[in-house]
Amino acid sequence: MPPNLERRRRLACLVAACLTTLLTTACDPTDGDARDPKPRSSPTPSPTYGTTKDLRACEDGDCTVEVREGDVIPFGDSVRAPDLTIDAIGPTGVDLRLSGEGTTSTFSGQSPDQGGGVSTYNGTDFRVLEIKGDTAVLRIKRNGL
């Protein structure tokens, strides 16, 4: 299927899924990441996270990934979300932007110690586990995985 047609199909599914619930904030106490929401100061990602630097590992909506400002995480067909762009990383948080044809949503100032802990977009959770200088560790998880 041509990439343009595929993007349109993903967008149509996204819009059809539910316009009124595109952005919600939730805290799921059963989520395994909720046990350790504190930032870490180690120079490398904690091995308990199972962190990767390969952004394509997130294609299925289930990954723990180290990111830098400007990184774009592409999602596959199974994830009802447009690509995720890391707009900024700083000491007070991470700015995330989901944008595709006809839609843009942002999560500003996401941090490991934010109230609620998880930001959700159309069934996919986004959690900042750690901020280390110009990098951050994100946990991305499709609901139901």
Rank of each mutant, 00 (worst) to 15 (best):
F75P: 00
G61H: 08
V72H: 02
G32S: 09
D83R: 05
D54T: 10
R35K: 14
Q114L: 06
E59A: 14
K53W: 07
F75V: 03
P43M: 00
E66D: 05
S111R: 15
G50D: 00
G70T: 02
G70C: 06
A17D: 14
E59K: 14
D28W: 07
A88R: 08
A34L: 10
S78E: 11
E69Y: 08
S41C: 13
T20Q: 13
E66A: 03
G109E: 04
I86N: 01
D54G: 12
V65I: 07
C18Q: 05
D95Y: 15
G109Y: 13
A57P: 06
L19S: 11
K38A: 14
G102M: 07
P39H: 07
P45A: 15
S99H: 05
V79A: 04
P47K: 01
R97Q: 12
L55G: 12
L55A: 07
T24N: 11
Q110F: 01
L19W: 12
D77R: 09
S42G: 15
L96D: 01
D31T: 02
G76D: 05
T44A: 14
V67E: 02
R68H: 09
L55Y: 09
S108Q: 11
D36C: 12
L22V: 15
C58Q: 09
G70M: 07
R35Q: 14
T24V: 15
V65C: 11
V94R: 01
T30H: 10
C27R: 11
D113Q: 12
D33M: 14
S42D: 14
G109D: 06
D87H: 07
L55S: 11
L96I: 09
A88E: 08
P39Q: 07
F107N: 01
L84H: 08
I86S: 04
R40A: 15
T30V: 09
P45E: 13
G100C: 00
R40P: 00
Q114F: 00
T92M: 04
